[in-house]
Simulated assay, not measured.
Amino acid sequence: MNRLIYIPVALLVFVASCNTQKKASKFRFDMPEAGTLVPLGESVPLKMVFPEDVSSFDSVVYSMDGEVLARKTDSTMVSLDTEKAAFGSRTLSAKLYHNGEERVAYSNIVVVPPAPKRYGFKVVAEYPHDLNAYTQGLEFDENGALYESTGFESSGRNGKSSLRKVNYQNGEVLQKIELDTQYFGEGLTLVGDKIIQLTWRSDVGFVYNKNTFAKIGEFTYGQSREGWGLCYDGTRLIKSDGTSRLYFLNKDTYAEEGFIEVYDSKGPLDSLNELELIDGKVYANVYTKDIIVIIDPETGAVEAEINLIGIHPEKADYNNELNGIAYDRRGGRLFVTGKLWSKLYHIELIER
């Protein structure tokens, strides 16, 4: 049985009146609304709602991330220039000084890069790729030899995580070692005569002699949660862990020495996977998507997106993702493949 509950109209009017008075007495931001996305370089109006009990005041001090932007003695709007703002959430505050008292209001904006350039692709050539290779890392050396890191196979295929040297022209595995079964192989990169290979959730990376594949060292992760992708910019290692962060590692000690957050025009970009360094930019697979993003490693801005939908028609719905970027610096050629793919593709980018 449902019962009707009657609330006196006078009580409702009283509650509404109290709420209205409370809102009117609060010093708060009218603009911008908290969480507003702002492309870098755009101006943002800062507009306040002043309490009804404040007819005049000494000053209002506007700040972003604790840095003073402006001091005003009236209620006119302030224009915030984001030209030099860092990407990500930026805290806004306004301090109202009145009769020896201070009232503070807060809001925030999320500074993002402009919309990225868009690229399609053209397949220049196709090469055989081992169907049992669950590709997690892919890289050419200066002589055109291709190195590959694989994880555990799936879909009933036998095999283990491995490190390989491959003849990319015919798919022949020239050299191979298998990881202990407790490890899930992930991204790799080359530093001189060494190969650096990540594992997924074991919190450890391995260092090998490039020529013999003999393990000559290992290291543990720092703040990064897992091992996903890895590349080398000539000075430092750059590592992904499946989040929106790229971590910078010392090339000799492998200690984490900082990170950046990666943003596109919609906000932080998660699921960054296999990495490749090309002409100073980080190319990154986005896990579960047929997309490669091009990232400025100094700012974290996604500058471009490569749409590779349809490149591999044999691709299954699960455990068959695009994952593998390799750049042949001698010929300026870009190659891609995926987990358990039968093909390695040489592609050219087409700007849209």
Rank of each mutant, 00 (worst) to 15 (best):
A70G: 00
D30K: 15
S63L: 10
T36R: 02
P51L: 14
L69N: 04
A34K: 15
M31A: 13
F27Y: 09
A24L: 06
P51C: 13
D65F: 00
L40R: 01
V44W: 03
P39S: 00
P32H: 01
V61S: 11
Y62P: 11
V61K: 12
M48G: 00
A24Q: 06
D53Q: 14
M31T: 12
D74L: 09
T76A: 09
A34Y: 15
D58Q: 06
E67R: 04
F29D: 12
S43A: 05
K26W: 00
A24Y: 03
E67Q: 03
L69R: 08
F57K: 08
V60W: 11
E67V: 05
F29G: 13
T76E: 08
V49A: 07
M31S: 13
E52T: 15
E42C: 03
F29Y: 11
E42S: 04
P32A: 00
V44P: 01
V60S: 10
L69V: 12
D65A: 04
D53L: 12
T36Y: 04
E42K: 06
S55V: 15
S63K: 12
R71F: 06
S25E: 13
F50A: 02
P39N: 04
D30P: 09
S59N: 10
K72T: 12
K23H: 10
K26V: 03
R28I: 03
V54L: 10
P51S: 14
S56L: 09
V49H: 07
K26L: 02
V49D: 04
K72H: 08
A24S: 04
V44H: 00
K72C: 09
T76G: 06
A70M: 10
V49Y: 05
E33H: 09
D53Y: 15
T76C: 02
M64Y: 05
V61E: 11
L46C: 07
E42T: 06
E33W: 07
S59T: 12
S55W: 13
G41T: 02
V61W: 07
V38K: 01
S56N: 13
S63Q: 10
A24P: 01
F27Q: 11
R71N: 07
D74K: 10
L69Y: 14
D58V: 04
R28H: 03
F57C: 11
D30I: 14
D53K: 14
V54T: 13
E67T: 00
F29K: 09
E67G: 02
V61M: 11
E52S: 08
E42H: 05
V38D: 01
L46G: 07
R71K: 12
P39G: 02
S75I: 13
V68E: 09
K47H: 10
S55L: 14
G41Q: 00
V68T: 13
M64T: 04
D58W: 06
V54M: 08
G66H: 03
M48I: 09
T76F: 08
T73E: 07
V54G: 12
E67K: 07
E67I: 03
S63N: 04
M31G: 10
G66K: 00
P45S: 08
D30F: 15
V49T: 00
A70K: 11
D65R: 04
S55T: 14
V44F: 01
S63G: 07
V68W: 03
P51V: 15
Y62E: 00
